[in-house]
Design a protein around this nucleic acid. Structure first.
Lengths: 334, 334
DNA sequence: GCGAAGCGTGGAACCGGTTCCGGACTTTCG
DNA sequence: CGAAAGTCCGGAACCGGTTCCACGCTTCGC
């Protein structure tokens, strides 16, 4: 009921002409087009997406696969993607692939193979080799946000550069006891590794290699809180902390406050992200704009869909230093 | 390439038989079924979702429409839904319908009408009348999480009851100066309204109707912070605060800390949600488990899809009081 | 022993669009 | 003025599955 055949009949034309009139492909006289269009409107006609997909081979849908949706970065990226797709009349199907779950396995083994999408955006996925293989096997363009430059398009900030700047900011203020907080452990993400190495490089360049200190923590606000509570409880504590991301950095600020350590006079804290809470906590940070990364990924993906044989492109965005009130020269009286 | 026809040929049977063998519908002898299954495996056959949808009228996909994905509650619900769908081999397409955006309008006007899904879950949508009309017009089951009981199935906690208990908890501790923080303003959500009325009812029952005080704020952590900073700056401040949700309550706690007001001795704070940060802040709260609401919604939706003419059901979950260290009797020395 | 019921299978219609191809008509151009 | 090119449209094939129906065979019940 309500198919294009009905529209065609009402407009007094063939299915073929009705289709051409509505899709805009091929020759149709202005008057018949008008007739078809108004017939469609009168009937409330909406093309069946499955029929269109079957006939054209295009789904007008993109898949987004990410390990979390409840973390700030991922949620923001998702919104950026969604907004871009909405402008272009494309749908979005979401795959929530938490590391180490059977769900993730099923997504890679079954869901992706169904090819419900014209292209795939993978966000912070840290895929294993066989997972990468799966993604290529589906023969659809893939763009990764926060991923390895290599065979596919990628979008992301220059993590190394960002952390380097964060660390240099502290060094420039006169700090020498600077700890890096966050990451480590078993499933230690590549981004976090890259960020740590940026920190180490900056420390080394300043001749502080032997003062470098990496404190492990879960990469969440409570994780940062817990790790910082340990670190700062010691009387021999650093004068500054670089958080692997803002959530960890804010956790550290909260811990400091609880311990009665003043920020920034007794402890400087810098993060990376410009999280929505950063301003409230007056956190100095390096701003990345995940929404923009999301929409950049959509742009890239659509290019790849249009021209599948174009070589992969990498978009690397620079992070801007936002100085707020969580950083200051170390307290020399101590 | 790789259609069911190829599988059929390789197994030496007709398309019809191959289809029956793979879907499990109709009579197929065990031996032919086996032949078909292994032929399919050898060819790496995966059925085209669009062809299946076209033929069966089922998409094996559910739509989820929500105004935010970056807020805790929504993200958790989304994960709950996703997990449930994953178990049942269903896909999920996400519609991000921010209030007052053209995107939202397009979702209701165009996207939903495409009927890419067998059913729809609407989360905290606060739909306008014409939006509700649109949702019914698509002729697919709808389940709402946090919505009006009425024509559709709904899932949610009993907000009135929850806030009542939160308020009674404070009254039981001896507080009489209790402010309700959050909500109000132009696009003031229905949940928040319901919660306020629960507070007012509890105050009235305790004979404190004239002490009731509603302080408006944006329903976010920074919003709670800002509003509480105003409220608590005054010397004539309440001894306890009920936050419309945990984010607002936590914002209030942070503000109190900044102002040097001790929690809980000088100020008790209670929230609603059991947000992931609640434990870190030792916030007394009423626990709701959004993930469970998500999976309950999926269950309901699947029932409705299976039996579309069943009367709508409402699932109302009770919230459990979790007492932590943010509430105590008022400081009588003051 | 024979009709009915149950099982296993293939042919063909069908879901609802798009697109190829060819015919008719009009315009352009040499 | 005739051929070629351009425009407009309809018939039919096609995308890749599912399902109705008919048919042959076996089993069962009376």
């Amino acid at each position: 009921m309500g198919g294009i055949a009905d529209v065609a009949k009402r407009a007094g034309v063939s299915k073929a002409t009705a289709s051409r009139a509505l899709t805009g492909a091929g020759y149709v006289s202005p008057t018949t087009r008008q007739k078809v269009v108004s017939a469609a409107r009168e009937l409330g006609y909406v093309a069946s997406t499955s029929a269109v997909s079957l006939a054209t081979g295009r789904t007008r849908n993109v898949g987004v696969i990410m390990p979390y949706v409840n973390r700030w970065f991922f949620a923001e990226v998702l919104e950026g993607i969604q907004r871009s797709l909405l402008e272009r009349d494309l749908d979005l199907t979401l795959y929530d692939a938490k590391p180490g779950t059977v769900g993730r396995q099923r997504i890679f083994d079954d869901y992706l193979a169904r090819k419900r999408f014209d292209g795939l955006i993978a966000v912070g996925l840290e895929p294993a080799d066989h997972e990468i293989e799966r993604m290529h096997a589906i023969d659809r363009p893939v763009v990764m946000i926060v991923g390895d430059e290599g065979t596919t398009c990628t979008v992301g900030i220059d993590d190394d550069h960002a952390v380097r700047r964060a660390t240099e900011h502290l060094i420039g203020l006169g700090h020498t006891d600077i700890a890096f907080l966050g990451g480590g452990g078993a499933d230690w993400a590549m981004v976090d590794r890259r960020r740590l190495s940026g920190y180490e490089a900056a420390m080394a360049e300043a001749g502080l290699a032997d003062r470098a200190q990496h404190v492990q923590s879960e990469v969440t606000l409570p994780g940062g809180y817990a790790a910082a509570a340990d670190l700062l409880g010691d009387t021999r504590r650093p004068t500054a902390v670089v958080g692997v991301c803002d959530e960890v950095a804010i956790g550290a600020m909260i811990a400091a406050r609880r311990l009665g350590i003043r920020v920034p006079s007794e402890l400087s804290v810098v993060g990376i992200d410009d999280h929505e809470f950063a301003e409230m906590f007056s956190l100095t940070t390096l701003e990345q704009i995940p929404r923009e990364q999301g929409s950049a990924a959509v742009d890239l993906l659509l290019q790849q869909i249009a021209q599948p044989d174009r070589p992969p492109v990498d978009v690397r965005l620079k992070a801007r230093l936002v100085v707020r009130a969580s950083t200051a020269p170390p307290d020399t009286r101590a």
